[in-house]
Amino acid sequence: MEANRLVEARPLGLVLLGGAIGTAGREGLHLLLPAEGGIPWSVFLVNIVGAALLGALLAHLAAVEPETPRRREVWLFVGTGILGGFTTYSALATDTVLLAGSRLGLAMTYAVASVVLGVLAAGIGFRVGRLSADRRADRRADPARGGRA
C-alpha cells in the first residue's frame, strides 16, 4: 500500500474506531434504561449529554490548540467517532414517529424538547469547555502557579 493511501485511511480508521466505541456506549445505556411508558429515555439522554460533550470538545479544541493534524485527529476520533456514534438523530426521528402513532402530543413534546435541550446543552458544554481552556491557559502563563512567564 502506498504511503499516501495509508495516510488517507487513518482518518477513516479513527472515525470507525471511535464510532464503534460511541455506538456501544449508546446501546449499553439503552439496555440499562429501557423505554418507560413509551418514552425512549436513553435516546433522549444520549442526545442531550452528547450535545453538551460535543460543545465542550469543540470549545476546548478551538481554544487550546491551533488547527493541526493532531487536533483534526482528536476531533475525528472523539467528536465525529465516539460522540457521533453515541448520539443519534435517526433514533430520535424513529422514536418520535413510533410515539406519534399512539401519543401525538407526547411525540411532539419529545422531539421539540430533544432539539431545544440539545442546543442548550451544546451551548452550555461550549461555555464550560471554553472556561476550562481559559483556566488552563491562565495557569500556564502564571509563573506563581508553575507556568511559564
Rank of each mutant, 00 (worst) to 15 (best):
A93E: 14
V119M: 09
L58S: 13
F126Q: 06
A141S: 10
P34G: 07
V112R: 00
V128G: 01
V64R: 13
I124D: 00
I82H: 01
G55W: 00
D95H: 07
G147K: 03
D138H: 12
A93S: 14
G38C: 07
I39C: 06
E8R: 15
N47P: 08
M108K: 04
G81V: 04
R130T: 06
A144L: 15
A3F: 15
T109F: 14
V116S: 06
V49P: 02
L99T: 09
A111I: 01
L61H: 06
R145W: 09
R70I: 10
S102F: 02
S102Y: 02
L117A: 12
L98H: 12
E67K: 08
I21R: 06
N47D: 08
P34W: 02
G125D: 04
R135L: 11
L106M: 14
L98R: 15
L76M: 11
L54C: 03
F126N: 09
R148P: 07
V49F: 07
G13Y: 00
A91K: 03
V43T: 15
G118K: 02
D142G: 03
A51K: 10
R70P: 01
A144Q: 13
L33R: 00
L45M: 14
E2P: 15
A93H: 05
L57M: 07
G123E: 04
A56G: 13
G50Q: 00
A51V: 07
G55L: 02
L99F: 08
V49S: 09
A52G: 11
A3E: 14
